[in-house]
Design a binder for these strands. Structure first.
Lengths: 220, 220
DNA sequence: ATCAACAAGATTGTTGACAAGATGTTTCGC
DNA sequence: GCGAAACATCTTGTCAACAATCTTGTTGAT
């Protein structure tokens, strides 16, 4: 076995491991995280675990209450809606800028993603569609050159993993979001900032609607 | 002398003290922060100082490089522009929601702020105008009920203190921003979400223009 | 059976000392 | 005098033990 991870390395490792555990459902909201257990599980020192927990709390993924440890934060539907409203505002900005600033390579990749998305929906390849979806959003943000927005959106997405999961596997969801995604691509590739912003906003407004109609946040 | 501050209390105190020192110019960008000095200066333990530095680094106010300590981060004009673009997107959202959701009390306070602002500009009372400006933005965000946007905007403002300072005392700036502020107030009080969003965006677009025309970020 | 008080164990918070690395200074060869 | 190596000093990072607090389980009285 390798030595115990310490400092920056351990900190990063533990934080990533917890994020991953969250995504894969190994950790559920409300669950308590004990420093010693995490240290043993991930082969890090308690100090490293402590710093990692602070980082995750700053991202609002965890909630740490003094003397009582860290818990996985639960995100209400209302908060998920607010997060998505903010994402909408920022992605609208990015889409508009991307329409003006994207390089030819980026426009080409966007077009390719559009083609692949159509195919994925036709084939019922849900995981592939989800990956393309994520890449699309990333690419639009990257093409906008808005580094601050990129970081901010990254922060906002942290606590949302749970909902992304729930929404993605709603029946008929891909068929519904496909035209919205294609509209974003078309506007950005076609150098129409106004339309790009509108398309991005329309897409996320639809996500908000879906969130609102999803009754309870968690059946567990 | 009281005892050394430790844990959450010291952490908060040190972070606030550093923020204040930044605003008042006691700390300049690029300046190195030594943990022991801070601990002595603010009467806290080194542990508390350490945690405070982590917090400020998470807010992107400081930059901490391993084994070499923490420095005050310098914000380029380009980054300041990007931050303001993000603020624009989010405040647009908040202004629109505030126009619909503000309580009568909040609308009354907004109207009062408008009156006071006119007066302050007429009197040349710059500090008063600056305080009203800040209160106006706070109030719009509060009235929108968008807690996530509120936190996010707070984060974005962190690294901007320096530029707010530089912009506020440009000659003729208040006279220029006054009508923009009044337009926001009028739209929110008059329950016109569209106009409120447009007014907020227009105001911040003007701030961006001012930022761009402000040549070098720092004469030091 | 219910509840309060208490004790035992578990968990987080804090401290002080030391290790590791960076920075600045002196000294030495040329 | 100039540059480079050796040295001294300062600063941050790490750790292990201890202290403070919370949680859980038990007991005993009503």
């Amino acid at each position: 076995m390798t030595d115990k991870l310490t400092g920056a390395a351990g900190r990063q490792h533990v934080a990533d491991s917890i994020r991953h555990a969250l995504r894969s459902g190994d950790l559920v909201p409300g669950q308590r995280l004990v420093e010693n257990d995490l240290a043993a599980a991930y082969g890090a020192t308690r100090g490293a675990v402590r710093e990692a927990l602070q980082d995750l709390a700053a991202e609002e993924i965890l909630e740490i209450v003094p003397r009582r440890g860290a818990r996985v934060r639960t995100v209400s539907v209302e908060e998920a809606v607010q997060i998505t409203e903010c994402r909408s505002a920022l992605e609208q900005l990015c889409a508009g800028k991307a329409a003006t600033l994207a390089t030819d390579d980026q426009r080409a990749e966007l077009a390719r993603i559009g083609v692949d998305m159509r195919q994925a929906v036709a084939d019922g390849a849900w995981e592939a569609y989800s990956a393309l979806n994520q890449r699309l959003h990333e690419l639009v943000i990257e093409a906008s050159g808005q580094e601050v927005a990129r970081r901010t959106l990254g922060r906002l997405n942290g606590p949302m993993v749970r909902y992304q999961f729930r929404l993605a596997l709603r029946p008929g969801r891909p068929a519904r979001s496909l035209p919205q995604h294609l509209a974003i691509i078309e506007a950005v590739v076609g150098r129409d900032p106004e339309a790009a912003g509108r398309a991005a906003a329309a897409h996320l407004d639809d996500v908000i609607e879906q969130l609102r109609s999803s009754a309870a946040p968690s059946p567990t």
